[in-house]
Design a protein around this nucleic acid. Structure first.
Lengths: 237, 237
DNA sequence: ATGATGCTTCGGTCGCGGGGAAAATGTGCG
DNA sequence: CGCACATTTTCCCCGCGACCGAAGCATCAT
């Protein structure tokens, strides 16, 4: 017989996110960056020894993957699904426990990264523009790019071939701050990386420790605003 | 100063799902039913006193709502968001910890309820049919029903006016077993309730305690198969 | 009234797991 | 080779919380 007191997969996975230190580590990794154990220890506010234990459990549980390089060990989220769970859970938590009166407009809805793609105000505006203009057309389970869409996106530096290699070319990811979908999948990833390397977007410093969006904030640079307007007819507010 | 060891909303919410007994209760409530404290105690495998404490914490945390009626207290999930988190988290957990070789085809992908709408094989097939036939057309943030779509759906007994009263008329909800979207929102709710009351669908008994889909399984009745075929051109395998 | 049922509150036990200190391992560098 | 740094491992402490039994309230039945 199976142990009736066994945690069950759902509870076991939830338990991995239920510790404050681990939760801080995971939210930090939502920036898409690969972070070393030492950095994560500081972020989580614990001594390296403690952090090491937490990271071992997260890796054991399959939520993160570790890449050893020299004497550093880089940690990042394991998959799109993990990011989706953290994003959804974070959104629910934020709605349940309004953290300090909540300067909703200026803090949470701000443009941000969701693991490897764009979210927040910019993410949903982009989604709306691409689909509204017919550059992305609905297909079962996601979106495909039209001829003009491919041309427009390629002109902004997006590597569409690379985007094709993902399991999903383009699909929706629910945005909890805007409550509308933004773009995920291979295309979402390539857009974010292309515009970041091109200097159209830049990462913003997180403000303080308990920041829900730590390391995830981004902003549109002046060149980015120009490029988005000219290339996609998109006005980033 | 704020306490640097404070759990943070994400960890606090995750902790509510991290207990085996509470997780069993929440998954049971994913059937959309309102369950009494006693039923939930038996489902969770704990004594009523313990269950009462758990339910108080879940209500306090905003994950469930309680409705007192006579000497019973009915508990159900608080919102669509809560259901989405549990569904997503359950999907991730199932993928991480393949529970017993996993008879994927026959168990998990089976048609089921996702809080108040259809999921699983039937859910995604329906989604595909409604959108593919043009009966639902994409609009920002979800779907709208075309004239023919409204007619077809009304013919199957769906109350479209009632569906309109929801915050969202129709939107996607990621299906973790099929890995494609199924239909949520007011329309998803009305479809499920209409077809259940009409006898096109019926609830199946859950098999055993540790059942991930406890109380969520549904099946298409013979009349349902006929009605879906004639009304929507849908063949429920 | 008396009892039965459903649920909650209280009191107490106990184990799990998060915390840090110190030591061990492993890697790069002069 | 020997030192410095990043990380892990081991060990122990300690508090939170899950659990149950018993008692306390409600509500419904006879």
């Amino acid at each position: 017989m199976t142990d009736p007191t066994a945690p069950g997969p759902l509870a076991a996975t939830a338990a991995l996110m239920a510790d404050p230190a681990r939760a801080r580590m995971l939210t930090a990794m939502m920036s898409g960056e690969a972070l070393t154990a030492g950095e994560l220890a500081r972020i989580a506010g614990v001594v390296p020894a403690t952090a090491s234990g937490h990271l071992a459990r997260l890796a054991e549980g399959g939520l993160i993957v570790v890449h050893a390089q020299g004497r550093h060990r880089y940690h990042r989220l394991a998959s799109e699904e993990v990011a989706a769970v953290i994003e959804t859970l974070g959104g629910l938590a934020a709605r349940i426990a309004p953290p300090r009166p909540w300067k909703h407009g200026e803090t949470a809805r701000q443009s941000r990264l969701c693991w490897n793609h764009l979210a927040g105000r910019l993410g949903v505006t982009l989604h709306q523009r691409l689909t509204g203009a017919g550059w992305l057309t609905p297909v079962p389970g996601g979106w495909a790019a039209s001829a003009e869409g491919r041309e427009r996106l390629a002109a902004t530096g997006v590597d569409l071939d690379e985007a094709m290699t993902a399991k999903r070319f383009a699909c929706d990811c629910m945005d909890w701050s805007e409550r509308r979908p933004h773009l995920a999948g291979g295309l979402g990833r390539e857009i974010a990386t292309a515009w970041l390397t091109r200097g159209w977007l830049r990462r913003l410093p997180g403000n303080g420790e308990g920041d829900v969006l730590a390391r995830r904030r981004i902003a549109v640079t002046p060149e980015g605003a120009r490029g988005l307007h000219e290339g996609l007819g998109l006005d980033a507010a």
